[in-house]
Nucleic acid binder design. Sequence first.
DNA 1: TTGACAAGTGAACGAATGTTCACTAGAATC
DNA 2: GATTCTAGTGAACATTCGTTCACTTGTCAA
Lengths: 215, 215
Amino acid sequence: MFTDLREEAVQPELNARQQEILDFLVRTIRERGFPPTFREIAEHCGFRSTQAVSRHLEALEKRGCIHRESGARTIRLANGLLEESDSTEPVRMVPLIGEVAAGRPILAVEDIEDRLPVRQDWLPVHERSFFLRVRGDSMAEGIQAGDLVLVDPGVRVHRTEIVVAMIEDEATVKRFYPEADRVVLRSDNPAYADIVVSRDFRVVGRVSALIRKYR
Amino acid sequence: MFTDLREEAVQPELNARQQEILDFLVRTIRERGFPPTFREIAEHCGFRSTQAVSRHLEALEKRGCIHRESGARTIRLANGLLEESDSTEPVRMVPLIGEVAAGRPILAVEDIEDRLPVRQDWLPVHERSFFLRVRGDSMAEGIQAGDLVLVDPGVRVHRTEIVVAMIEDEATVKRFYPEADRVVLRSDNPAYADIVVSRDFRVVGRVSALIRKYR
DNA sequence: TTGACAAGTGAACGAATGTTCACTAGAATC
DNA sequence: GATTCTAGTGAACATTCGTTCACTTGTCAA
């Protein structure tokens, strides 16, 4: 019973063989455009029987990694396994949020206006990064109303860097000056006064890039 | 001989049947993840023989629409046919030029530092558009040294718009104020004096967007 | 009319392919 | 030590699947 419990917990993990076969499936489908036959899989693994392949595929199907129909070359990858290629691919579609709504997860699907392409090797982004359209009243120098800023949540923010902060349910773009027991949010433009906050705010993320459209 | 010539010219076109089969191939591969068999194609077209399918596929292969290997379900679509779905969301790779060199075509291959993805439906670009890295001494307000500006050559430029102009073999980013027999290039920043030019310059293109990386 | 050609039928064939069954070897469990 | 489980072998089998051949039908040009 004890071991049963532990094995249940380990179930989602994949065997070394199963992983090897799954990788081979992904690679073959990507390169040749159609799945391999049992014998091609066997040859790749060094098997001399198709029976071993059959059982491994059965296991992979039981864990939801693949789907199968009857017939030759009818292995289909589960959702997400083929699209995983996007993590390899240098261009990632980053969502654009028009406005950060209060009390909702930032990346709520309903709030995604659009998606813009970003080359990951040129401008590092991660799963939770997003573009935010800057409102008129929250500018740092060189940032104008209507600009799109790329926000990276969960990234360590250093002094003087530009951040997006939520203050009273509104997103603001300012420079970040942490102090002993408070934080000063400053605009590069001296016409705007500093904003001093202590607890009633939270940093959404660091601004790592900007896009502006003219006309 | 006359008809021969005409048939030669029509060759790249696809038959109604061939188009039907090609569409079926694309749809099947997209939905099921692997190509159909000859008999599945026959059933879809209403054929009662696989021979018809065989000849149509042969024609499709001869025209470069598909590739085939021996074996079951080994039809692969030619490049571009599967990605045609991307044409719904066209991302174009726009070259990035570090510096506009004098006396050379702007888009000389050797000068292309990189390529950045742009969604055409979101930000119109054309064949000759490129990104230019802004030098330190040619700023308009809201544009900083190191920013990348998207330049559209061959687009009609209107008064007050931002342009990239070549002045004495150097690229400059300024606002465009045409007058009777001369052109004033003005920086939004009043610290920079106007540049008045008459003949010794040329407008490279209109600035339609800007990208800035922080850090 | 004749001939050429493209399109499709029908059946048969053989190779490719997934499935099944009996068996072996090793490791873990009782 | 006996049992169970996993992993793999080897061969035989039935089906699927692409290929081939002979034949029919309709169209178009000479």
